[in-house]
Simulated assay, not measured.
Amino acid sequence: MLSFCLMSRLATTGEVLQLIRSGEAATRADLGRVTGLSRPAVVHRVTELLQRGLVVEDAEGPSTGGRPPVRLRFNAAGGVVPVASLGASRTQIAVCDLSGAILDRTEVVIDVEEGPDVVLPLVMDTWEKLLNGRAPVVGVGLGVPATVEFAAGRTESARVMAGWTGVEIPPLIAARYPVPVLVDNDVNAIAMGEHRVAYAAELGDLLFVKVSTRVGAGVISNGAILRGALGAAGEIGHIPVRDGGGVLCRCGNTDCLDSVASGTAILRHLRAKGRDVHSLADVTALVRAGDAETMAVVRQAGRWLGEVISGAVNLLNPAVVVLGGDVAEMFQPLVSGVREIVYRRSTQLATRTLRIERTRLGPAAGLTGSALMVIDQILAPEAI
C-alpha cells in the first residue's frame, strides 16, 4: 500500500492524488492520518489538485460529531485521452476519460498498409469528431500491430504494416496534439486493458493471446506489462510448430504459428479443401452448421496454438490465459484445441490452478488499455 511508505517522509502532491484515486483517503482528515502531513500541508496539496481539476469536492460525508467532512473524489472528467487500436482488418478509435472509461467510440475500415502518412491523419480527424468540444486532451494512446520500441514509440518488425517499420509515431501525432503520446504493441495494450478491468482484483499474472489476421501475445507479470529489453516480448506468432506442413511464413521461416493457426491460415486451409470461404464470417457459418471438416481445421489451429502457449505457460506460469481476437472469439473448437494441448503438455504445477478463458472485454480492451497506458504515466506521482 502507498500509505505504508509515506509515514517516514512527506507525501508529495502526486502521492496525495494516488491516495484519493485508490480510495485510501476520502477526506482531508484521512490524508493527514495516512500521510502524517500537517493540516496546512494537506490543505496546500489538496488546493493544488482542486485548481488543476484533478480532484473535486463531493457532498458532505457522514458526521462523527460536529460538522460533516467534505469528501474528496478523483475527477475523471478533468481531461480526455484520444486512443486508437490499429488492426489489419479493422481499427477501433475512441475518446476516454481519466479513469480509462470510453466516452465515445467508432470503428473504421482503414488499410493500414497505406502507411502513416495516410492512416494517422485519418485517425486524428476521427478523434476530432469524437472529441466534440470535450475537456482538454491530456495525452494520446495508440496500439499498433507491430513490435514497438516503447521508449521512442518507434515501430519495428511490423506484422501487417510493412510501411511502418522504423517509423517514430509520437512526433507525428504531437504536431497536432502537443501532449504526451504513447505507442505500444496492440496486444500489450489489449492485455493491459483486459487485466486491469477484468482480472486485477484477483490476480497479477496473465497471458493474453490474440488470434486474428495474425497471432500475438501480451504478458502481464505482477500487474505490469512485460515488454522485454527492446519491446519484442510476446511475439509468439513466429515460433515454429511441429508438423505444420512446411508453410512459408512472411518472416522467411516455415511453419510459424502465424502461418498455420491465424485467421488468414484457417481461410487458406479451408480453401485448399474446396470450401468457398471469403471471410471468417463464412467459417463461422460452417462451424455453426456443424461442418466436420471445417471444425477439424479450426480445432487443429487450436492445437498448434496450444503447442506454443504450453511453452509460454511453462516459462511464465500465468494464472490465466485469455484468448481474444476475431478467431478466438468466434470459434469454440479452437479454444477446445488450445485447452487440450496446454493441459497435456504444460507442467502439473503450472496448470494446477491455470484457467484458459475467452476475453471478457472483447474489442474494447485495446482502447481501454491504450488509455490506461497514458493515464498511468501522466498521473504518476512523479509526473504530478
Rank of each mutant, 00 (worst) to 15 (best):
2 L>T: 13
140 V>W: 01
169 I>D: 02
167 V>Q: 03
12 T>M: 10
296 A>M: 01
355 R>C: 13
111 D>P: 08
232 A>R: 01
253 N>T: 13
173 I>S: 10
381 P>W: 07
64 T>R: 11
177 Y>C: 10
57 E>P: 03
349 L>A: 12
29 A>Q: 15
314 N>C: 04
269 H>T: 08
302 G>R: 07
177 Y>N: 01
174 A>G: 09
185 N>T: 03
121 P>S: 08
305 L>T: 04
155 T>H: 04
181 V>L: 12
47 T>C: 04
149 E>Q: 12
135 A>H: 05
75 N>S: 14
45 R>M: 05
280 L>F: 01
238 H>P: 13
302 G>C: 12
1 M>N: 05
314 N>F: 03
92 Q>I: 01
176 R>M: 03
187 V>C: 09
252 G>F: 13
13 T>S: 12
253 N>M: 11
90 R>P: 00
67 R>V: 13
20 I>H: 06
156 E>P: 01
163 G>V: 01
153 G>E: 08
95 V>K: 04
51 Q>G: 10
75 N>L: 04
193 G>C: 07
140 V>N: 00
101 A>T: 08
51 Q>A: 14
337 G>H: 11
87 G>D: 07
155 T>P: 03
51 Q>H: 11
289 A>H: 08
320 V>M: 09
198 A>F: 02
49 L>G: 08
178 P>K: 04
356 I>T: 09
109 V>Y: 05
44 H>R: 15
143 G>M: 11
45 R>G: 00
372 L>W: 12
53 G>W: 01
240 P>L: 08
272 A>W: 01
91 T>V: 06
343 Y>S: 04
64 T>P: 00
322 V>S: 09
95 V>H: 04
318 P>C: 12
218 G>V: 00
77 A>T: 11
222 N>P: 08
266 I>P: 03
233 A>L: 00
96 C>R: 07
35 T>A: 07
90 R>G: 12
361 L>R: 09
117 D>F: 00
97 D>W: 06
133 G>V: 04
224 A>N: 10
267 L>H: 05
343 Y>E: 02
298 V>W: 00
119 V>N: 02
384 I>S: 09
41 A>F: 02
326 D>C: 01
305 L>W: 05
346 S>D: 10
28 R>E: 15
376 D>S: 13
358 R>H: 10
101 A>V: 06
173 I>T: 05
113 E>P: 08
344 R>L: 15
255 D>A: 05
217 A>G: 12
351 T>L: 07
23 G>P: 10
149 E>P: 04
21 R>W: 07
24 E>D: 15
354 L>F: 14
110 I>Y: 14
165 T>L: 00
306 G>I: 04
112 V>R: 06
163 G>P: 01
318 P>K: 08
286 L>I: 01
70 V>K: 14
64 T>Q: 11
384 I>W: 14
113 E>H: 12
72 L>A: 00
129 K>M: 09
73 R>M: 10
38 S>W: 09
134 R>D: 00
168 E>L: 10
337 G>W: 15
117 D>V: 05
328 A>F: 03
207 L>V: 14
303 R>A: 08
353 T>M: 11
156 E>R: 15
325 G>Q: 05
372 L>F: 06
223 G>N: 11
188 N>H: 10
147 T>Y: 03
26 A>Q: 14
294 T>F: 00
353 T>Y: 15
310 S>Q: 05
175 A>D: 09
54 L>Y: 12
131 L>H: 14
97 D>V: 06
11 A>V: 10
126 T>C: 12
